[in-house]
Amino acid sequence: MSSSLTLSTEPTAQRPRRLLVALGGALIVATYLFLVIVQPAEIAGGMGSVASLVSLFGFLGGGALLVGGILPTLTTSSLVVMPLGIALNIAIGQIAGSLGMQIYLDAIGTVLVAVLAGPAAGAATGALSNAIWGLFNPFALPFAAGAALIGLLAGLAAKHGAFRRVYLAPLAGLVVGAIGGLVAAPVAVFMFGAAGTFGTNAIIAVFRSMGDKLLVAATKQGLLSDSVDKIVVFVVVALIVYALPQRAVRQFPFARTYRVLGARSGERTAQPAAGNDRVA
C-alpha cells in the first residue's frame, strides 16, 4: 500500500562501490610497500622526488578513492555525525592545547564516529578530516590515508567488541596506534624529511644517533608515540560513549546491530565503584 506520503516497503539500499574501495585500499597498500622497499635509495638522493610524489598521490589518491566509494553508501544518520567528528578532531586539539596536554588527541572524533557509525564512516571521517585540516595546517594533508586507516580499524575493533569492556579499549588503541604509526612514518619521511614537533624529533634523533636510517628511526618513533596517543584516544572515547545516554547511542544502526557497547552501569542496576571514581 504505497502512497504519495509513504515510502515503499523495500528499502533502497545503495550498493557500496566495492571497486572504488578496493582500488583505494590497494593503492594505499601498494604505496606503502613501494616506499618501504625502495627506501634504501632514498637518502642517497635520486629517488627522492619519486618517493615523495608516490607518497603524496598514493596516500592522497587512495584516501580519495576510499571516500568516493564509501560516501554514497552512508545513511544520513552516519552522515550527520561525520562533520561532528571532523570538527571534534580539530577542536579538541585546541582544547588539549589550552588545558596544556602534551599529546595531540587529533583522532578522538574519528574514533568516536567509527564506534557509533561503523568502520566505513570512520574511514571517511578520518580521510576528510585531514583533507579539511589541510586548509588550516597543510602538514595534515598527506596523512589522510593514515587517518582513514585509524577510522577503519577503530570501527572494526568496535564491531568485534573492543568497546564492550572498558579495559579492552586501550589494547585496541595500542594495536591501531602501532599500525597507524607504521603507515604514517614513510609519509613524514618522504614528504617532510620526518619533520615534526621537537618532542617527536628528539626521539628520532636518539635513533639516528644510534645509526638508524631515517625511515627506520621515524618508524620506531611512530610506533612509540602513535601507540601512546591512540591508547589515550581510545580510552577517552570509551569513557565518552559510556557516558552517553542510551537514546543517543540507539540512533545509530551500527552501534545497535553489533552491540558495540556492553552492559552499562548507570542503568537501574547501578554497579558499585568499578570505573566510577573519575572524580576521585
Binding site: M1, S3, S4, L5, T6, L7
Partner: peptide, 23 residues
C-alpha cells in the same frame, strides 16, 4: 490523516514508513 489520505499504524514492524520529504 493528511489531506484526505489516512495512514494507519498498528505498532507492527510492517507499518508504513512516512516519506519525510513528501510529508
Amino acid at each position: 490523516t493528511l489531506d484526505g489520505e489516512t495512514i494507519r499504524f498498528d505498532g507492527a514492524p510492517t507499518d508504513p514508513r512516512i516519506d519525510p520529504a513528501a510529508w
